[in-house]
Amino acid sequence: MQRVNMIMAESPGLITICLLGYLLSAECTVFLDHENANKILNRPKRYNSGKLEEFVQGNLERECMEEKCSFEEAREVFENTERTTEFWKQYVDGDQCESNPCLNGGSCKDDINSYECWCPFGFEGKNCELDVTCNIKNGRCEQFCKNSADNKVVCSCTEGYRLAENQKSCEPAVPFPCGRVSVSQTSKLTRAETVFPDVDYVNSTEAETILDNITQSTQSFNDFTRVVGGEDAKPGQFPWQVVLNGKVDAFCGGSIVNEKWIVTAAHCVETGVKITVVAGEHNIEETEHTEQKRNVIRIIPHHNYNAAINKYNHDIALLELDEPLVLNSYVTPICIADKEYTNIFLKFGSGYVSGWGRVFHKGRSALVLQYLRVPLVDRATCLRSTKFTIYNNMFCAGFHEGGRDSCQGDSGGPHVTEVEGTSFLTGIISWGEECAMKGKYGIYTKVSRYVNWIKEKTKLT
C-alpha cells in the first residue's frame, strides 16, 4: 500500500490518463441519441435557420407576430419608411378606419389613436360632414345658397324668414311668412316636400332668348283662358290664391305678392273693366268669414305684352289694390325667389296649380277651390304637342294621358313649387288646347323671366 501511494504521488498524470480511459469505455446513459432527441424537440425550422439574422431580410411573422416588435424591426421587413409607417399605425392600436367614419364618399386613412378623412370636392370637416359648395344638395341650405369668396357655403332665406341657429334652416321672422300653410287642420295635408338634388348652379339658368321682337298675326285659340281631375282644397291650404270678379264672377285667378299687390295673367284683364279681388276665398257660393274683398285701382301688364300681336306672350300683369290686405292664416303671400332659384325650383319637376275653373272641358265651374299636382314636361315634348308657338318664356306641365289639367277660369292662378315646406311661385296658368285632352298640356308663363320686374313694381313704400 505504501508503494502504491508513492507511485500516485510521483505520477499524477498517469492516474488522470487511467481515469479518462475508464470513462470513455463506459456506456453513456444520461444523453439520448440524435434521433430520439429530435422526437422530443420537434420544432419547425425557421426561415433563416442556421444563418445569422443580421444578414437576412426581415420576416413579418418572425419579427412582429411571434413577439412584439419595434418600429426598427418592422422597418427591416418593409425596407421602406412609408410602408412601415402605414403598417405601424394599425399594428400599434388597430384600424381606426374600420367603422368607416368618413361621410359623403370620403376616404379614410388610419393613424395612431386617430384617423384622417380625405374629402371629395365640396366637403370638409373631420368626417367630411361639412358642405362647402352650393353645387351639392344646395349646400344643405333649406332655401338659398351662395358661395363666399373663400368658396364656403353661405345660406340665406327669402323675405319674412331668418336663418336658424344651425345656419342652414329657415324659420319665420314674421307672423305670416310667405308660402307657408298655417291653418292647423290643413298642415297635415301639406304636399310632399321637395329635397334639393345635386345641381350645376353655374349652368342652372337656361341660355334662352326671349323672342321679344317676333311679330306674329293673332292666333285663334280655343278655350285658351284655361282644375280638371283635381281635388277639393281645404280652407287655408292655398292662402296665396285669390279669385278675380268682373263682368262675371271667378273669371280668373291670381296670387298675393304682398298686402297691396296681386300677380295674374295679362290676358285676364281689360282696361276700363272694374275688377274686384277676393282673398281668403274657399267656396265661392258661401260666406265663410275668411274672405277679404278689395278693388283694383291700377293694372300693370308687362311692358312687352301686346294682345294685338299675341294674347299669351309675356302673359303676366300686376294688380294694385285700393287697401292693403290683412295677412292671416287664410290670406298669405306666395314666396318669389330670384331668377336663378325660381328656375331651379321649376326644374324640380312638379308643381301645384289651383283655381275655381271648370271641372271638365266646357263644363261647370268649381264651387270649392280645386288643386292638382302636375309634372313638368320637357321642352321637346311640349313643342311636338301643339302647332302653336311655345315661346321661351312659357313652359308645359300636365299629363300625356289627359284627364287632369287646369281649365277655363283658372287662368292667372299660381303654379307653385314647394321647397322644404315653403311654396314659391314658378308659373302662372296661361293657356292650353281644350282641357285635359290626351297628348295636350297646360301652358304656363315662366315666372323666372319676370321676377325682377315683379319685385321692382310691387315694392311697398
Rank of each mutant, 00 (worst) to 15 (best):
I17H: 02
F87C: 03
E159L: 07
E116D: 14
G179T: 00
D33Q: 07
A436G: 10
K455R: 12
G363N: 08
V269E: 01
A26H: 02
P301N: 10
E323R: 04
V4E: 06
A37G: 15
V353F: 04
G122E: 06
W118V: 14
E35T: 13
A37C: 05
K188E: 10
T381L: 09
F196L: 12
Q90K: 12
K339A: 15
F224T: 13
E270V: 05
S99M: 15
P197Y: 14
R384A: 15
E67S: 06
Q167S: 12
E259Q: 05
R364G: 11
T194R: 09
T287P: 11
C145G: 02
S114V: 07
V451H: 04
L346P: 02
N100A: 07
E53P: 11
G357R: 12
Q370C: 05
N127K: 14
A149Y: 13
E433M: 06
I443K: 04
K362T: 11
T417N: 11
C69Y: 03
I443W: 12
I443R: 04
L19T: 04
S70P: 05
T158A: 11
T81G: 13
P414D: 03
R373A: 12
Y391A: 14
E259D: 06
G398P: 03
F388C: 10
E53S: 10
V296M: 02
D111E: 05
T461M: 12
N328R: 00
C396A: 01
F55N: 15
G246A: 11
A37K: 04
Q219G: 10
W118Q: 12
V248N: 05
I112Y: 11
D95M: 08
G432A: 13
S430I: 14
L376Q: 06
K311C: 03
T458N: 00
R180L: 05
I136N: 13
H282S: 09
K234L: 12
K109M: 08
E53V: 08
G403M: 12
F251C: 05
S49K: 07
G272L: 03
V374I: 09
G160I: 00
F395K: 01
T332S: 14
D198V: 11
I344V: 09
I40A: 15
V331C: 05
R358S: 14
C170G: 01
I344S: 14
V242P: 00
N245M: 04
V273T: 04
V447D: 00
V77F: 06
L20V: 10
V30F: 15
E61A: 09
D131W: 07
G50H: 10
G179L: 00
V243P: 01
D110I: 05
G253I: 13
Y91S: 12
K438H: 15
T133V: 15
F224R: 09
K39W: 14
P375V: 06
T386M: 15
Y115V: 04
S11W: 08
D223S: 13
F221C: 07
D212I: 08
I262H: 00
S187N: 06
P301S: 08
H314L: 00
T158S: 08
F345H: 02
T445R: 00
E129F: 02
K168G: 05
Q57E: 08
E208A: 12
T389I: 14
L372K: 13
L372Q: 14
Y312D: 02
V278D: 03
P324F: 03
V202C: 05
T225A: 09
P44S: 13
L376V: 09
K188D: 06
F55Y: 10
N48T: 14
A173H: 09
A436L: 12
T426S: 03
R3G: 10
D111N: 15
S365I: 13
E288T: 06
A192L: 11
